[in-house]
């Protein structure tokens, strides 16, 4: 459904994403894992069509990402991005204006679940509230692909269960969810596949239940195996 071939992005002399080829299939929730700066965000931004690759391609259902794919791919960046003059209601109106798959009804329901008021100004929201708002407005779309960059960032422990429940409710056989996180434990039961990225290169894509069954290791164990010694080296 979402496929990258030899996808590469360089910033000046630094290679953020290095010849990554992979195909993500619908009907799965993928956890995209790697320490900060490993290229998760850059890969997602290219898949969302916000960033242009240095070389290689990324396609959605066989078409290069662009105008058409943006209708079906819901992307949530890790940084807050709403216009500073907006209230929570304005944010919903904006999505309603631009995305045919947005449901105002679903948006209001998610706002209630996350205890957000439509009159609140986005400028004055706490970081936890802003994080919830981003998730609410993104999940209120009925998209084919959801890419959530660090959905648990800034969200306190108690609210994480709620967020996780909302994300799981969006999963379906014809949909693809891609969640990046450095909070590996939060993703353990939610994801069924994991994409491990290191220094911009793809390490592997694994089926998690299969990995537990055959190797007896958790996603977090595998994460430590892949990245552990590099962190020691850096320290």
């Amino acid at each position: 459904m979402l496929k990258s071939e030899e996808l590469t992005k360089k910033f000046g002399g630094k290679t953020a994403v290095d010849h990554v080829s992979m195909e993500l299939e619908k009907g799965h929730i993928y956890a995209m894992l790697g320490p900060n700066g490993s290229g998760k965000t850059t890969w997602m931004k290219m898949a969302a069509g916000l960033m242009k690759p240095t070389s290689g391609t990324v396609s959605f259902e066989g078409m290069p990402v662009g105008l058409e794919s943006r209708k079906h791919v819901a992307y949530m960046s890790t940084e807050p991005y709403f216009y500073s003059w907006m209230t929570i209601r304005d944010v919903g109106q904006y999505y309603e204006d631009f995305f045919d798959d947005f449901s105002m009804e679903k948006y209001r329901q998610l706002l209630r679940e996350m205890e957000l008021e439509e009159e609140m100004k986005t400028k004055t929201l706490s970081s936890g509230m802003a994080a919830k708002l981003k998730i609410a407005v993104t999940l209120a779309r009925d998209a084919s692909v959801y890419m959530l960059d660090e959905p648990f960032n800034g969200i306190d422990l108690l609210a994480r269960d709620e967020i996780r429940r909302c994300i799981i409710s969006e999963a379906a056989e014809d949909k693809l969810l891609l969640l990046s996180s450095h909070l590996v434990e939060e993703m353990e039961a939610v994801a069924d596949r994991a994409v491990f990225i290191k220094y911009g290169k793809l390490v592997e894509v694994r089926d998690l239940e299969e990995m537990r069954l055959t190797d007896g290791v958790s996603m977090a164990d595998r994460y430590r195996e892949i990245y552990g010694h590099t962190e020691v080296k850096q320290a």
Binding site: G27, H28, I29, D161, R164, R165, I168, S169, A171, A172, A189, V190, A191, D192, E209
Partner: peptide, 17 residues
């Protein structure tokens, strides 16, 4: 299946399994 997944906080494919 989806409700079970949400209730237990697990992946829907896992719930189906």
């Amino acid at each position: 299946g989806r409700d079970l997944a949400a209730e237990y906080g697990i992946n829907p494919n896992t719930a189906a399994r």
